[in-house]
Computed example of a mutant assay.
Amino acid sequence: MTSTRFRLALVAAASGLLAACGGGDAETEAPETAAPAEEAPEESQAPAEPQMIPAPEGSQAADAMIIGAEDAPVTIVEYASVTCPGCAAFHTQVYPSIKEELIETGMMRMEFRELPTAPQRVSFAGFILARCAATDAGPAAYFGVIDALFKRQNQWVRAQNPGAELRNIGAQAGIDGEAFDQCYQRQDIRDAIVENIEEARDRGVQGTPSFYVDGKPFDMPFVPEDAVAALKAEVEKRR
């Protein structure tokens, strides 16, 4: 069960989202691995939470973010952070081959689960934008924003004002003005991200990216050909 201190840490990080989207963050270094949450502040020091708004009717923003056929024989789960350089390397260099050769051919499907790393509130902000994009269009729109965040990671994470860069990415995804601001007031989106963080902590995930194949830890090669071969071997085991 998740501890009170852990929940307070998540609340503190989430409550800084609007600030993160309005100005820069002093932390600019994004390590490849990190613990699932920062040290929790004392309860009396926890910042006030922003006013939350409910999800629009029919929203898909809080759904599991899965790409691939429902009847694929293998499911791979990735815990990742949009501020993690190792995650960006995987998604820009390795993932395209996995998607083309395994996901699009129906051999496997992939679920992406958020695990924000430093600077945590900036990572939270990126994830909220991605889930907000999925409100009407589902996982396809989510993965489109995730892809943009990884490809432009150095630009927006290390910017003096990460929020301004996120606004640019949001505008390209059709989310701007008031719609962008409302993303950061969505209770359903924040809850979905927190749920993934808590689950990762309970599962013992130590860093990002981390992978599980059908519920078991998987050591992902970072050479595209090797990754595809290793995952194909997992598919063969289940035939």
Results as ranks from 00 to 15, higher is better:
Y142R: 03
D181V: 06
V213M: 10
D226M: 10
P54C: 07
V223Q: 09
A171D: 15
K237D: 12
C183I: 13
A64Y: 06
F222Y: 11
M107H: 13
A159M: 03
P162L: 11
Y95H: 12
A64I: 06
P50S: 03
K151Q: 14
V213G: 06
P73C: 05
F127E: 12
E236A: 15
P139V: 07
Q45R: 03
R7Q: 10
Q153C: 07
E70W: 07
I98K: 00
P209A: 02
M65Y: 09
R109L: 06
A229G: 09
E101V: 03
A13S: 04
R152T: 15
V213W: 07
L102T: 03
S123I: 00
M107G: 05
M65R: 11
V205Q: 13
I197H: 09
R190W: 06
L17N: 13
R152A: 10
P54L: 12
R131V: 12
E236H: 03
G126L: 02
T208K: 09
A230Q: 12
P73I: 03
Q206P: 05
R239T: 14
K232P: 01
A137K: 15
M108R: 00
F143L: 08
D191Y: 04
D147S: 14
F150E: 12
Q120M: 11
V11L: 14
S59Q: 05
P224K: 08
D176A: 15
D63Q: 07
G174W: 05
K232W: 05
Y212M: 02
P41L: 07
V194G: 04
A61S: 15
V94T: 09
P31S: 08
C21A: 03
Q93Y: 04
T2Y: 02
A40S: 13
L10W: 01
E27I: 10
E234M: 11
M108P: 01
W156P: 02
T92G: 04
Q153S: 08
A179I: 06
A13F: 02
Q155V: 12
P85M: 05
V235P: 11
M52L: 13
F211K: 07
C183T: 13
A141W: 01
P85L: 03
G207C: 08
I193V: 15
Y212W: 02
D176V: 02
R239Q: 12
E198N: 09
P139R: 12
E198Y: 01
Q45E: 14
I128W: 01
P56T: 04
A46L: 11
E43K: 15
A19V: 04
A118E: 08
E104Q: 13
V194I: 15
I76G: 01
Y212C: 01
Q155C: 06
I66P: 01
D188V: 01
V228G: 04
E49Y: 01
P116S: 04
N168M: 14
I53A: 14
A72F: 11
Y142N: 02
E114L: 01
A9I: 13
M65V: 11
R131W: 13
S3P: 02
E57I: 08
G24Y: 04
A20S: 15
